[in-house]
Amino acid sequence: MAERRRFENLLPHLILWVGIAIVAFPVYLAFVASTHEPAIIANGQMPLTPGPYFLENYYRAIFVGTTGTTREPVGTMLLNSLVMALGIALGKIAISIVSAYAIVYFRFPFRMAAFWLIFVTLMLPVEVRIYPTYKVAADLQLLDTYAGLTLPLVASATATLLFRQFFLTVPDELVEASRIDGAGPFRFFKDTLLPLSRTNMAALFVILFIYGWNQYLWPLLITTRDDMQTIVIGIKKMIVTSDALTEWQLVMATAMLAMLPPVAVVILMQKLFVRGLVETEK
C-alpha cells in the first residue's frame, strides 16, 4: 500500500520534471551560448556545458554593445525597458483603479455608457488601432520619448474591470461606516479602498510589468533613435540577416539579461501576487 502511494506521488512529479526540462532547456542553452566564443557557435558545434567567456561576453553586452550597426549597449536598453514597463504597469494601475472607483461609487450621467466604452476597448488592442495611435503620437511629438513609449499603452480595460469586480465585493456598510466616521470620497478611497486593494494591485503589477516589458510592436514603431530602444527591440536588431555576422554570444547574453528584471519582479512579489489571486482580504 505504501509502495503504491509512493509511486502515485512519483508519477505527477515525473511529469512536472519533464515539463520543467522542456521549458528550461532552451533557456539553459541560451545561457551556455552566452559563455562561449562566437566561432564555436557559428560552427554549429556548441557544447552543453558553459564556456570560459562569461565575464567578457557579459561585460561587452552591458557596456560596449555589438560591433555591428546597433552599437547601443545593453545598459541603456535595460533602462529604457524598465522605464517603459514601470510606466505602463504603474500608469495602468493608477488610471484603472481611479476609473473603477468612479464607476462603482459615483452616480453621474452616462455612467453606464462610460463603463461600456471602457469595456468595448477590450476588443481594440494596440495592434488593431496601431495606425491612428501612431498618428496621434506623432502629431503630439511623442516619437522617441518615454511618454510616447508608455502613454498609448496605459489605458487598460482589463485592470479597470478587475478593480470594479473587487470594489463590488466590498460591503456597502464599509462606505456607510466611513461616511458616518466623517470620511469623504477622497478619504474613503485613500484610507479604506487603497489598502484593501493592496494585494490586487500587487498581482496586477506583476502581470502588467511583464506585459510592458515584452512589448514589441509599439516600441518598434515609436522609437527610431538607438538610445531609445527597448531591450526586446535591441535583441531583434542585433540579429543581422547574414548569419555569420551575428554575434550570437552577445545576443544570448542580452537575452539572458532581458529575462532578469521580469524574473526578479515575480520572485520579489510572489507572496503578494499569489495572495492577490486567491484571497480577498475583507
Binding site: P171, E173, L174, E176, A177, S178, D191, T192, P195, L196, R198, E281, K282
Partner: peptide, 8 residues
C-alpha cells in the same frame, strides 16, 4: 449587523 469594521 456585519459590524463593518475596517478590515485593514
Amino acid at each position: 449587523q456585519n459590524y463593518a469594521l475596517y478590515p485593514h
